[in-house]
Amino acid sequence: MNLFQREPAEPKSQAELLYQAQQRKERQFRTNVGLSWGILLLFLIFLFSGNDIAIGSFSIKTINLDQNFIKENMGFIAGGLWETIKISFLSIAFATVLALLAALGRLSTNPPIYALSTFYVSLIRGTPLYLQIFFFFLALPQLGIVLSGTLAGVVALGLNYGAYMSEIFRAGLSSVGKGQREAAMALGMTPRQTMQRIVLPQALRFAIPPTGNEFIAMTKDSALVAATGFVHELMWRATKVGRAQFHNLEALIMAAIFYWVMTLILTALQSRLEATLSKGDR
């Protein structure tokens, strides 16, 4: 017997050829989309480049940004990044806890607990986030409760996102089939053990990707707390220097770039996380 014997190369099947053609098409599409993105981006940069271009009698004036202002205030505005990430992170952590409790309450057969959960969700969803933020900054002090800027922001954003995210956790909890609970109960687990060991780990795993999406959304909604004037995050800093020196255009563009790049990075991390989770042991 020849150990080094090889299988003869098989001619490619029809299906294989079709598959390759399909792959080629998809690659080409992605390349073209990438190129178009590049062109749009270049156009945007050109639009704000401050160049004056004359082609014959036809001249194009692009928008002129004050480079000095940008250089001088870059550090100050960038300093808000950390505050933005911090407040988003704390808020999403608080929101996650609230969302999980609200989801458990929503699935409870205990009337007061069920009521508390639905009441909370209804109240929060029925009022604007902007109002809720002002409530914690401006209305509470009237009752003698003064929260620090960051704390008030985290409470407002957390309560708001918690109500919306309760749906994620409810979906997560109900994604765990009845058979799982029954198998745990048949083994003799108590309802609490069943929840902790069997249902929650599966529900939380299900909820990780959508929670990541909420975190990304939160980094942008956190800009709303700037309006109160107490949290020195990106938006607050941009508007502060922009207004003071009447360079709102530059300041807001800078903040927008920070938000956008942050979102791009977080979205990339998010898709990687999702890919890892989905190829895991499910």
């Binding site: 089939g177 058979g179 799982q180 029954e182 198998a183 745990a184 048949a186 069997i198 780990p201 599966q202 795993r205 042991d281 499910r282």
Partner: peptide, 9 residues
């Protein structure tokens, strides 16, 4: 059970 109901995690 008919559907096995192993714990997938």
């Amino acid at each position: 059970f008919q559907e096995f109901n192993l714990f997938p995690h």
